[in-house]
Amino acid sequence: MRCKEAQSKSSAYLDGELSDEQSSAVRGHLRTCSACESLFEDESAFIEFAANLEPIDPPDQVWQHIAKRIAEEEIADSERSSWRRWLVERRVALGVVGASVCAAAALIVVLGDKGSQESLAAASASSDAGALMPSEVVSQSVASERALALSEADLNYQQTIAELREMLEEDRMSWSEGVAHAVDTKLASFRREAIEKRFAVTDGTVLVSSRDPIYATYRAEISFLQSALAGQLPGEEAP
């Protein structure tokens, strides 16, 4: 065994991870190479010192600060908007909520506040692919109203996604590197897909169904975000 090979195995040797045969070969090299023996002794001394470091106690006031911050967070919870709290509660208690239900709830709350029944009807319809009108050309006056409602629907989908993303971001610290990578990849693909589909659709179109592909992407992303918030994360090892 040469010095380079022996040194590459130093940690495995000192941690007792080598086979008997390999350990014997390393020991044999150390008996004949004082330079390597010295390096191994330095590493061994470090391991022993590190393992025997005394534990550190945090200052006494840390718990009080933590308890205070938790109380503040709970107060902030109580001040969250009702539909957001509804989402948070369900993400814990029920897990996945249907994407169309969520999107419709968000749209109803936002549009409902504006008191526009027509917009509400159009937007609610746009949140459910099954209720969308077929590729129907509507009259120009109705079309302009509908285009307005559709652009509001766009914004509301995007707002819902932005809020869900923000909530998911709070969970990031508890993810492994693999999960974080898988989530980021998935979210980037949704964003790319939505941009591509937006480019493919002419703004202000009178064809209601022409925005279906974009909304399908939004709904898929909302569904993914809700699943992730409920703990169903991609790239996670099976238990």
Partner: peptide, 10 residues
């Protein structure tokens, strides 16, 4: 000669 550095038990 026997007192060569060995694996750490912990």
């Amino acid at each position: 000669a026997l007192a060569i550095v060995g694996p750490k038990s912990r």
